[in-house]
Design a protein around this nucleic acid. Sequence first.
DNA 1: CCCTGATTCGC
DNA 2: GCGAATCAGG
Length: 163
Amino acid sequence: MPVLSPTTSPTWTDDRIELLKRHFEAGLSCREIAADIGVSRNAVIGKLSRLNLTRGRAADDRKDQDRGFAPARTRRAVPRLQYEMLATIYGESDGPAAAGPIDEANRCSLLELSENRCRWPISTPGEDDFCFCGNTAPDGQPYCAGHSRLAYRPNTRARVMRG
DNA sequence: CCCTGATTCGC
DNA sequence: GCGAATCAGG
């Protein structure tokens, strides 16, 4: 007999499902599993639910949801989020160090602040030791270089995934 | 706000 | 059965 005739795309084949289960049991998040297998997160979750492999909930109550709506639910392709995310992670060309020379030696009180002094608050307003960073701040910036990086968060979520 | 998990429902 | 859309919680 011949081998087989995959006329259609081999969606969830055995090895895929095994990978799915393996990664799931390994504790990987659905997003990671999806990325590894090459499908969408929802596909993974959907399959897991179908296999009754939900990690937390027990497929129970959940209130009533949408019902009776159909604007245009056909192909919207949303693997973009993943790619953007991956691109962000892999394209992270950020200075590993030397980005925040934060000295506490220059701290000053509110009254001592001037235009070129970092206004980063130290401690809690009202407390005895409440003061400001006081470091030299670049012109136009309210904070020094180090605190500016903290204040303006390009990506606070710089999580490190093993890879 | 963003991310993750789970459910519902159209295809 | 599959997965996009959607909701719900953290």
